[in-house]
Structure formats: structure tokens, C-alpha cells
Design a protein around this nucleic acid. Sequence first.
DNA 1: CTACATGTAAACCGACATGTCC
DNA 2: GGACATGTCGGTTTACATGTAG
Lengths: 330, 330, 330, 330
Amino acid sequence: MSDSFHCSQESDILPPDFKHLINSESYEDIISAVENEPFMVAPMKLMSSPTCAMLTTDEYAGPFGFEIQIDGGSSGKQWMFSYDLNKLFINIDTAIHLGFKCEPFQSGLFVRAVPVYCETDAFQEPIVRCLFHRAESNPHNKGFSADIFDHVLRIIHSDAMYDYDESSERRSVRVPLGHPQAGTDWVTVEFKFMCKNSCISGMNRRPTDVIFTLEDSNLAVLGRRKMKVRICSCPKRDKTKEEEDMKSKHGNTVPQGKRAVAHKTEDDPSSKLRKVDLFQISLLDKEALVDVTDYARSRILRKLRIEKRGATEKEEKLLNDYECTLQMYE
Amino acid sequence: MSDSFHCSQESDILPPDFKHLINSESYEDIISAVENEPFMVAPMKLMSSPTCAMLTTDEYAGPFGFEIQIDGGSSGKQWMFSYDLNKLFINIDTAIHLGFKCEPFQSGLFVRAVPVYCETDAFQEPIVRCLFHRAESNPHNKGFSADIFDHVLRIIHSDAMYDYDESSERRSVRVPLGHPQAGTDWVTVEFKFMCKNSCISGMNRRPTDVIFTLEDSNLAVLGRRKMKVRICSCPKRDKTKEEEDMKSKHGNTVPQGKRAVAHKTEDDPSSKLRKVDLFQISLLDKEALVDVTDYARSRILRKLRIEKRGATEKEEKLLNDYECTLQMYE
Amino acid sequence: MSDSFHCSQESDILPPDFKHLINSESYEDIISAVENEPFMVAPMKLMSSPTCAMLTTDEYAGPFGFEIQIDGGSSGKQWMFSYDLNKLFINIDTAIHLGFKCEPFQSGLFVRAVPVYCETDAFQEPIVRCLFHRAESNPHNKGFSADIFDHVLRIIHSDAMYDYDESSERRSVRVPLGHPQAGTDWVTVEFKFMCKNSCISGMNRRPTDVIFTLEDSNLAVLGRRKMKVRICSCPKRDKTKEEEDMKSKHGNTVPQGKRAVAHKTEDDPSSKLRKVDLFQISLLDKEALVDVTDYARSRILRKLRIEKRGATEKEEKLLNDYECTLQMYE
Amino acid sequence: MSDSFHCSQESDILPPDFKHLINSESYEDIISAVENEPFMVAPMKLMSSPTCAMLTTDEYAGPFGFEIQIDGGSSGKQWMFSYDLNKLFINIDTAIHLGFKCEPFQSGLFVRAVPVYCETDAFQEPIVRCLFHRAESNPHNKGFSADIFDHVLRIIHSDAMYDYDESSERRSVRVPLGHPQAGTDWVTVEFKFMCKNSCISGMNRRPTDVIFTLEDSNLAVLGRRKMKVRICSCPKRDKTKEEEDMKSKHGNTVPQGKRAVAHKTEDDPSSKLRKVDLFQISLLDKEALVDVTDYARSRILRKLRIEKRGATEKEEKLLNDYECTLQMYE
DNA sequence: CTACATGTAAACCGACATGTCC
DNA sequence: GGACATGTCGGTTTACATGTAG
Ligand SMILES: [Zn+2]
Ligand SMILES: [Zn+2]
Ligand SMILES: [Zn+2]
Ligand SMILES: [Zn+2]
């Protein structure tokens, strides 16, 4: 869970680009804007919902600095991530953990994942499971509701919501984005792909992307990330092959001097800087949440009063967070 | 991390500390409330008996403050208890004494023990003895009634009752809970495990828990405790190994080349993500954490007192969590 | 090596030779004997119908001298017949014409075709179409009744009857056998195969035979022929490959790194060991072999003539064997 | 099927010993003796039947020159034969083909295989299947008669007879020895082992031999061979290990000059010399057998008469064989 | 308590099977 | 018809699990 993968199509020489992370200077402005008119960020629901036929696929950090992360280090299993290609190679029915970050994490946010064909010709065709894998008798469907039989992409979470867009016929899945565990500022979500790219009567050997969008509960898009994905039986073999293909292609057009460079992404200190060591407690119901949040807020304020000082940046952010919560539930 | 046995990460030298279990101030109130209306806690016998296929495994002190204790200090050679793992490592056919507490001890109470597989996949499969150990000719069966040949778990007591649930096919054993001997408030029960986790045609190397339930004679569940158990030939070696594995796992981000299997309930962080029915707040530092947690706890206790009722299962779990947190950071 | 199509090892240039099938001298006698008492051959319908799970697959000319013919000369691109392998290689949805002969052609006769897996393990599993090809939306099903969507094998004839054996779940197709056109004594029937052997969720790369039975309207079997079939995308390539494999196998003692699977009936020598109901004698040289085989053959034929009856299945098999031997060594 | 394995316990330097093959000089005497007083060879049935507790295990070619052969060449399977150790390493439920030779092959002969513990302590204990593998529910028993559930050793042949010796409680299996196929003078029998040496409540890690005896129908022993067998999950690993152990043991007691020498057994020309290229034909019933055999005999005799010469050795043997057959069935 | 015995599982790799494209 | 795409299999190796023995 250490490497944030970059999203450009360029060769692996390029360092990952973190500029899309929110600059702290503009942070308060955004937050305050959001607080006052929550979720104003152009919903454009009718014109271009995150699941419409011609959905936008451009990367977009958005007001929350939405980011996505994969732990490419633990390769060698049923999946491999290629930093060179920014592409995930994964077997069918294999759990993959992706990390999501947004600042701040607040209730009412969702992450949606929608698979799309990346070739222009097929782009508008919705991706659905093949006849074989969607059959009720298929073991991968054992114990699941028929609602999700047609979904290629699953989120393994009891709150996962499987959406079907009647107009585009796209199927997607989303989950409420909780808060990060102590010691990290990423929220981990587990995905599984339930068809192969090669499935006949399904994806039929067409290459695919997955589009991840950060949304509020009105489906307004607050951020967007893209990842190439190939679901296949031999992730390692195919990753190697595609990387070699890519290199030899570059070899023809670009001088050979290129050398493999260590991925800065993997240990970019800037991401570490952002880690906040927060603690968490769980509350039973909204009433308790409001009550305890209020207590926690007054606690800080009292402390500041006693210590006769202003809030640190961290404290400020937390207070902000508390306010958001209180506003939302009171 | 929600087990009654121990909540700290310290080594197993420390004796178990049970003081944190139920806050003594509010304790009497709860009990007295319950005493007047005994067994009010919805039995839900049909929906979920303590031996049904999908039996509940969550810890639950219940109206009697049901607790369980093991004397880990006197760990002999044939068994060892790991406080780090909350897990008993024991050889086959070895006597182990467990202490049970409920307040008040009254007639008509039983303690039942039912072994279950903890892996999600196998959870519903009843645990029975392997063909080898259940054979009449097996020396461990000498002198016993054939009724218990198939039971992995025995209570060494003349009043032990061996139950077979025809619907789930689970086999369990229970015994009337007497009164504590003078000088203690724990009742001791002797158990023996009659198969190993590694027994082929039996548990087949699958890890197991034992669920202890406090019941009345109508099988209504009045309390529940869980203990991980591994029956093996080398309790010490295997305990050491698992503890080391656990430590190195917590050290690394991801367990490297190890075999991991989905467990039904685990303290693995991803399971926390599933606590969707709970709310979370973030705190800045340990001091704030302790302070706010204590506030949240007293809030619940106050509520219970006001409403003159015992804790629901959820509330109890939360209280438990709070206690653990407090103990860890105070 | 007991197929009607061809018994020599020569290349597929040779046209099929049908002369050896039934010795013409004794042939008329047999037929006339049968004509007077038609259908005397024990139908044993209950015990072993032509579509039951354990259906018989042995070749059997029967009282009508049932034979089957394929015009291998006109091998187009979409199908090829291998005389070396007695195997049809054909593409999906491709018309193939088979000739059937019986003497005399009379009303009330049917030809049934039932596909079966030839590997022992899968033999009893009924062959049905894969989920992809059986889907109503599949273009190959356009304009057809849903009754036949699940049938791998079709007869292109308005009188074709598609049977479903509820007990074995086998699907087969049959057609009334008309009379030959002027100038020939073969009746031609057009078949199509509607799945590939490689279809997942269908035949799943398992090799297949087709069993052709001559039947009366009571389903009594009056003759039986077998043909290996492989439905694939590259009939020619695959035919060449299998023929080469076969040759190199016969050359070497043991197929080195190849995958071999038990077949239900094969010319593999170990199956001969099982012929426990037969007796064997050893001969010194080819001359003796031919001589004695011829003697044994005439012995059986004489007996049939004397007893005025047709050959039993066993006798016919032996006669077939003898013919093969004679042809091979004469 | 090329290597006859030798049966001595010595190191692998020793060439295989073929002296036990029948000397051709004494051949006629033996045969004639046998023909006149068939099966006179000391039956000793009561004292030491081939399945008694203290059964003899010494190698014994006997009057028929009984021999056994295994094809050790094909590695990488589920079994491996060590010529160094004269030991078969094989997985459970794995087919192994053994070749048997006796001169002459005649009807009424049987081959029996009985497994025994080779350690002195356990030798008299009968070998039976473990509780796990003998259970009716065990998939390896699916489709088999309960009679053979307890047998560790199976012969895959419809005529296999499973014997139980009530006095010794040993279980063994035997099969009538047919005639060799054309082109070889070995009869092949397929065996399977249905428990592992490590099976608890069964062989329990004790090493085993298999004793093969050539018998007549009165259980008189006419030949005996012995083979070490280890049934395990990793035949290759364990074979390698035992061979290394053996070598290092020899290294301590014997000067190191020993070098691995090619096994003469593997291509000993003497065995090739004995190969007779005979042809075979099958007959339907005894009557046909007698008739055709008589024809074949007179054919040879006529030929000799015409060519005015005596019989060659081969012819002589065949004639003898024919006589045997006629005598037995007429 | 160390060394070993021995079953199991995962990972790896190369060979093959078989559809598709050009 | 050749080159490729891509699933599957079989064999190998390595690591691990776990009982036994000295
Ligand atoms: Zn699919
Ligand atoms: Zn057991
Ligand atoms: Zn199909
Ligand atoms: Zn066994």
C-alpha cells in the first residue's frame, strides 16, 4: 500500500505527477465553498452522469484531491500492476485492494467504479458479464443476489451498491467512502473482476479501463481517476508481454538510451508528509455521533482557550471536520 | 481485539486482567434490572439457536455478565494459552480447565461449548470427529457411550449433555453451571478436545473457534464468549510460531508470501471498514482519544441507567471496544 | 480399428473401401432370414435405449447391413474427413452430408444421431450446447424453435425429430430414412454441428463421437455406427495435427510429453486385455495368421448359414476384426 | 516396458541377475513333467500358503521361470521406480503396469499380489486399508463392491479376485494370467495402491513389500517375486531422498571409488532374445477355440510334412501350446 | 527440543490447444 | 496459411504444515 500509481500514458521515465493533489493554500477556500453550498460541484447529471454512455474519463482530482493507490509491491500473485503501463493485470475472481484518498474524508462521499472499453469503437457499449459467467449456476454467483450477476466489477463490501443506468445500460458499483484507519490516510476498498477480457459473449478480447469517480450522494462527480485493466489467466505473462511490446515500439521511435529508472512514486516523500496520525472512535447512532463530536469539538476549543493559543493546522482541519459532521446530522 | 481474555498487545507473561469487563459502578444497576425480568433478552430460538448453522459468534456479556477465564499462568506442557492471539493451543485428549462467571449464579443456567470453523468458507460445516478417532476401537473411546464418539469437544463431568442439532448437524456439549466454590466467584469446567485440527477426514487442518454460550434451560442465549483453539501435537511450538507470524504481519504492510484465508471475524483492519452501522469520529492525539472515549462510554452507561435496561449486543460490543482502547492508552 | 470407414493405416488419399463390410456370399442369406422375422433382434429397450446414459457404442451392421458413408473426396474448406483416424473435422454451423445404407430400405426405419463424449470419465454426461450458443439471441438460433436451441447436432430436414431423454438428459436427433434416389443405394442426410468441441460451458474441449443408430419406430436398434467428430475452427490444421500425432505415437513406444486420457473404446492394446469373454490363439507368422483367420471367419459364416440367422453383435464384431486383419495382411 | 528389475538388495553396482530364468536345456523336462502331473509343485498349502501370516518372501523363479518387469523409464509421472533400491515409489490411486512372464503361458495360471510389512516386528500383521480410505463414502470406493474396500492393493481387471485369508487376515488380489499380446512375451497387469504408507490407522509409516506369486488354481506356488513399494504423495522427492540416503550410507562403510554404472537391466539383450513375434486371433467360444486351434495345429503339421522337415523350436513351442489348449478344453 | 518425515499448497514455467486476424 | 492471442495443463520447485522420534 505504498505506491501511488500515476495516470499518464507516458513511459516509465516520467516521475509521477502529484500536482493534482490539492495545494494547501486553496484548501480552506474549497472547504468553505463546499460547506456553504454543499455539493455544488457541477452535477451535470443529465448531460454526463458518471455512468452515461459518453461518460467523461479524464483524470480529475477535484475539490477533495481525489487519489487512488495500489500496492504494486505485493505482486507475484494472481495480479500484477505495471507502473510502466499504468495497467492492472489480474485474474478473474481475485481480490485487489485499492486505496482512495480525499481531503477531508467526510460522510456522504462515495467511490464509484465503472468499467469501460477503451477502444473508441466500443466505448459506448456497456460492459456486462458474459453468458457463461452470469449464469446462475456459475459457482462465482453462488450466494449472491441475482442483481449482481451481470456486473463485471464487484466491490467486496456489505454496503456496495450495484447501479444499473437504464439509459446507457452501464453497470457500475459504488460504496460509501468511510474514514481511513489509524495510521494511514487512505481508505482501502476491495474489488473483484468477474469476467475475463477474453470472455466470448462478453468483453470479447476488447481492452478495458476502469473509471473511478468520487461522488456525493447526488451523483455529483467530485473527482475522477482512470486505470487500465486486463483480466486474464496469466497476469504475469501478459504484463511482461505488453511491457516488452511497448518497449520495442518505443525502441523504434525513440533513441535507445532510455534506461529503467526507479519509480519515484514508490517512495515519494511528499505523500508521506501528508500522513496524519489520527485516532478514531466508533459511535452507535447519529445521536451519539452528534453528542460525542460536539464534546470533542468543545474539548479542543477549551484546550485552546486554556493554552491561550490559536489552532494548529491539524486542529483546524479537525474542527472543520467536526463542524461538517455536526452540520450534516444536526 | 474484543475478546474477554486480554486486550493489550503485551507478552503472555501478564496475567489476564478482567477488571475492565464491566464497569462496576453501573454494573449492579444492570443486573438488578435484569434480575427482575429474567430472560428478557429475546431468545430468538428459532431464528438462531446456539447450535444452528449460522450461529452468532459475537461476544456478548449479556444480563448476567457472562465471562470466561483461563489460567494461563500454569501453562503446562500439553497446552498453552496465547494472550496475544486469544488462542488456546492444546494437545489432543488433554484436560483444560476454564472458569466461568455470571452474576448471579442461579439454578437453571448452562454453559454450552460448540466448536466451529472460523474460515468463512467452512463456517457452516459442523465439526465432527475424524474417522480414525471416532472409531469404536480407538482407545480414547474406551469406556464411553457411542453417543459421544463423534464429539470433538467433551466436558469431563457426569452431568455433561451431548447435543446433536439435527438441522445443522452440529455437535455440542453443555453442562449445568453450578455455584462457585468458596473463595472464588468462578465455576471451573474441565474440557477435552478429542481430535486435532490436522485430522484428515475431520477438521482437516482448518482453524477453529469454540463458542461458549450461557443459556437457560430453554436454550435462550444469555451470554456468549469466543475462544480460538488449535488442537495439535506441539502446542508450544505452534503458539510461538503463530505469535511471530502475527507480529511480523503487523510490522509489514502486507503479509508477503504467506497464505491468508478469509476469516469469519477477525481483527484485521479491513473488517472494520465493514462496520457500516457505526459512526466514526477522528481524534488528534492519545489524550483526546482517551478523553472522548471515556465520554462516549459514560454516555452509554448513563443512558442504560436512565432507561433501566441492560446493554444490547451492539452496545456491549462498543463498551468493550472502549474499554480496550482506554486500557491500551491510559 | 473397428470402424466401418476404413481399417488401413494409409493416408487419406484412399477412398473409403466398403467392400469388406459384410461378405457378399453369405449376405443375402442373412437378410432373407431376417426379412421373414423382422426386428427379431432383441430390442432390450428398457435396459439400454439408444439414448440412455450408458448407451452401447459398438459398431453393428445388424440385420439390415446398416452402413454409413462420407464423401471424403470433396473435402471443402469447412470440413475434412480423416480416413486414418476415422474422424470428421468440421466447423460449426457447417452442412455435412452423410450417406446411409440399409438393405432393404423399408418404411418405418429411422436414423438417429446422438453425440457422446468419448473419454470414459465424461461418457455419461449428456452433450448439450454451451450457454453462448444456446442463447436465444444467438444468430444461429434465429428462426428456429426453442426446442432445438440446446441440441448440438441438427439434421437439416423438415421431418427431423429432436428427442430429449429425460432420464439420461441426452439430446439426439433422428429422421425417417427414405429411399435412395435413382442411381444410388445410399440415402443422404444433412447434418450440422452447432457448438465447437472447445465451447466453454459446453463440450469444454472434450473429444466426442457421434453414434448413428438405425431404428424402427419402437426405438429398437437395428444397426449402429460410430464416427469420431471434432468441431473446430480450423478443421484442416487440426486434422493434420492429429494425424501426425497418431503416426509419431505409433512410432514411439510411449508418447513422451503428451497428454493422454482414457478413452471409452480405443485400439489401445490394454483394452484387449479386457476381452475376457473371448479366447485367443497365437500364430507363428503372417501366413498362418491369414490362413487361420480366414478359417475362423468362414467357420462363423457357415454356422450362421446353417442356423439361418444373422450375426449377433459379438459375432459381427469378430467378423469385423477378422476382415480388418485379412485386409491388413493379405 | 523395457527394463526387468532385479530383485537383490545389493548396491546398484551389481548387474541384475538373470540366472533365475529357466535354462532352455531343462525346459522340455519341466514341461513334460508338468503336463503329466500338472501342478505337482509342492503346494504346502496348509503349512505356508501364499497368504499365511509367515508367508515366504524369497524370490523363486519356479518351473515356469516366473519373472516380473516394470517400465521405469517414464519419469515425471505419479510413480517412479528406483533400480538402485529395487523399489517402487508411487502415489495413491495411481495405475502402474507390471509385466509378468512365465514359460509357457498356459491356462489355469494366476498371479497373486500380497502386500506385507518388511520390518520384522510388523511382518505378520496383515496390511489393510486405513479407516479413512476404507470408508464407503471415500471417493476412491465409489462404484466398487464393499468387498474390496479393505484392500490396499487392487488389480484393475474385471477378473480380479480379492482374497481374504481368515487365518492370517491378510488381504490379497489375484488375476488369471492370460497370454501375451502379439509382439511381446510379457503379460501386463494394472495395479493400484489405495492407501499411503503414511496412512494413520493403516500402514502408519511402516515400509512395505509386495510379494507376487505365480500360482495354479489350487493355490500352489509356482514362482515368487518381491518388490519394495512406498506409496506416498511425492514419489520423486522420496525416491531421490532414499537413494541419497543409501549412497551416503555406503559412503561411510565402503571406499568412495564407487561410481554410478549404467544398469545392464535396462537393455539386457538376453531378454530381447526371448521376444517372440507371435500373432493372435480371438475366438468367440470354447468350441471355436478348439476348432480353430486344431486347424492351426494341423496346418503346421501339414506344412512340416510337405516341407519334409522337423519343427523349429518356435514351432515346437506353439504345437505344445496348442496341445495344452486342446487337452484343457476338449 | 531438534531433526526429520511427509502431506499440501503455491508459484513457476514451458508446452500445448485453439480461436482470430490478416 | 502463418502469426498471434490466450486459456489450460503438467511438471518442477519451493515453502510450509505438522506429526514423530531420539
Ligand atoms: Zn465471462
Ligand atoms: Zn481425529
Ligand atoms: Zn457453443
Ligand atoms: Zn489410507
